[in-house]
């Protein structure tokens, strides 16, 4: 646990805003609370360059109500996993690509675009992955309000019930 505590202490020392927002979950697991875009963009290069978190395994996209969450799962050579979280409001779901530091995350970011409707700035290419070609635009299946029963496989269209019903459901 000492190595993990040391990493946390180092991070808190460097970035004051991480105070109380980063903790050791258990052995070999460090979690943070969601950071906003500006904070995230400071912490990530530091982790990569100074603390040896050079391997990125995946990005998990989550739907947290009004926000979209992104959990970057990084690890260092000792096998310690750090889950660095970022959040952006759904109204402006912009994040910056991290593929310059972690080329292995290109497909995962593509997935965030396709499945969650995030806008990843600077991500090269525009192929549709993993959804098939011809998927209706603006329809993001991994968001909580997307319901598979309204999707018509024949015509590849997403037909949710009228807006009002949906709003009522949302307010409850």
């Amino acid at each position: 646990m000492q190595a993990e505590q040391k990493i946390v202490a180092q991070l808190v020392k460097k970035f004051a805003f991480l105070q109380e927002r980063i903790f050791v979950q258990r052995q070999k697991r460090i979690f943070t609370l969601p950071l906003v875009k500006e904070e995230f963009e400071q912490v990530l290069p530091y982790l990569h360059a100074e603390l040896g978190f050079a391997k990125a395994s995946l990005v998990v996209g989550t739907d947290d109500g009004d926000d979209l969450g992104f959990i970057y799962i990084l690890s260092n050579r000792e096998g310690i996993i750090l889950a660095l979280k970022e959040k952006t409001p759904k109204s402006d779901p912009r994040i910056k690509t991290v593929t310059d530091l972690f080329p292995a995350l290109a497909l995962h970011e593509r997935e965030l675009v396709n499945l969650f409707g995030a806008v990843v700035e600077g991500l090269p290419g525009d192929s549709s992955f993993p959804l098939p070609d011809g998927w209706p635009e603006g329809s993001y299946p991994m968001r909580k309000d997307w319901n598979p029963q309204y999707f018509d496989q024949e015509t590849m269209t997403y037909n949710p019930p009228s807006q009002e019903v949906e709003k009522e459901g949302g307010n409850e």
Binding site: L107, S128, F129, P130, L131, P132, P141, M142, W146, P148
Partner: peptide, 10 residues
């Protein structure tokens, strides 16, 4: 790739 996406996580 992506031909085999089955929407399993959803």
């Amino acid at each position: 790739i992506g031909y085999n996406h089955r929407g399993l996580e959803k």
